[in-house]
């Protein structure tokens, strides 16, 4: 359904080019849930924005983003506007700032279907009520007239999700949907997203830095580092036998409930500068398993992992 092919995203900035995303490819099938995992600066949010055609003006994009065969990067603004919300919806990270504080929730919901489906105000309101029920906002009817500041953070994120659902798109990009929320609310929101697949059959690309959120939600995981894919695998396989040193590092940084004595290990160092197109494995400087080859060749993705060292030899 969605097929990202050799995607490159660069930004022209005051001090040179920043290579945010390098040669990233992945596919999303119908009602599939896939996760893009990586730390900040790994380019995961930029991938979501590029799919929506919402990258900043100083971005340069190469490659293809095929949506049912149509290359979104070569699509006119007009056609893109038709696809947005109607076929692909997006949930942004911060529900505090991604809702318009000067408009009622009702207007922010109804305008979507009024525009895309030519609904009357009355029908649009009925749809808004349905969707608000679907995302379990209590007392939806009375809350329609309220403004964003009258809701809690979790409720606002539900409204943002409701917005993405208004036209019942086939794909939802969820860009760190739970990062700005506290832990109990996080679980509710993830549950909600899981239910949405059951109810609507929507595919989801979940973008997160938290492997803990991925387990039990996505079948497939793409691990990004420095704008490159480090590893891609089915979630269960990835958790059982991570094939890349970076993935292993990430998993060691997730708390283990069964064994509380198990200390958390942080990955030493910090994310790479992306001013130059990578010539070697971007993770090599921080990698415990790095050998000389890692520092002068760029490993290609092969059998789901971009690492020159065999799995058996990793620590």
């Amino acid at each position: 359904m969605l097929s990202v092919r050799n995607l490159h995203i660069r930004f022209r900035t005051g001090d040179g080019m920043v290579h945010a995303v390098n040669d990233v490819s992945f596919d999303v099938g119908a009602s599939q849930h896939i996760a893009l995992v990586g730390e900040s600066g790994s380019g995961k949010s930029q991938i979501a924005l590029s799919i929506m055609g919402l990258l900043a003006k100083n971005a340069e994009v190469d490659g293809q983003i095929l949506w049912n065969g149509q290359d979104l990067l070569a699509t006119s603004q007009r056609e893109m506007n038709r696809i947005r919300a109607q076929e692909i919806g997006i949930i942004f990270q911060d529900p505090m700032s991604s809702l318009n504080p000067y408009m009622t929730i009702e207007r922010q919901l109804t305008e979507i279907v009024e525009h895309h489906e030519g609904m009357s105000r009355r029908d649009a309101r009925a749809r808004a009520l349905e969707v608000m029920d679907a995302v379990r906002i209590p007392d939806a009817k009375a809350r329609l007239r309220a403004y964003p500041h009258e809701f809690s953070g979790g409720m606002r994120q539900r409204i943002v999700i409701a917005m993405a659902l208004m036209c019942q798109p086939k794909l939802i990009l969820a860009d760190e949907p739970t990062t700005a929320l506290d832990v109990t609310v996080q679980a509710q929101i993830m549950q909600l997203l899981a239910d949405i697949r059951q109810d609507f059959g929507t595919s989801v690309v979940l973008i997160t830095h938290d492997l803990g959120v991925v387990a039990g939600f996505c079948e497939d995981v793409v691990v990004l580092y420095g704008g490159r894919i480090m590893e891609e695998a089915q979630t269960t396989a990835l958790f059982e036998q991570p094939g890349h040193p970076y993935t292993r590092g990430l998993l060691r940084a997730v708390p283990n409930i069964e064994d509380p004595s198990d200390a958390l290990t942080a990955i030493p160092g910090s994310p790479p500068s992306q001013h130059r197109f990578p010539q070697a494995c971007p993770f090599a400087p921080r990698c415990v398993d790095a050998v000389d080859t890692c520092r002068d060749t760029l490993p290609m993705l092969h059998k789901g992992r971009a690492c020159v060292r065999p799995v058996e030899e990793l620590t």
């Binding site: 893109m80 947005r84 919300a85 919806g89 991604s98 895309h116 917005m163």
Partner: peptide, 21 residues
């Protein structure tokens, strides 16, 4: 601002985004 990005993600025409949002 992020809420204008949200409005863009809704696929609204630029004119509506400026005038309404």
């Amino acid at each position: 601002s992020p809420y204008i990005r949200t409005a863009r993600a809704k696929g609204l025409p630029e004119r509506t985004i400026i005038m309404r949002h």
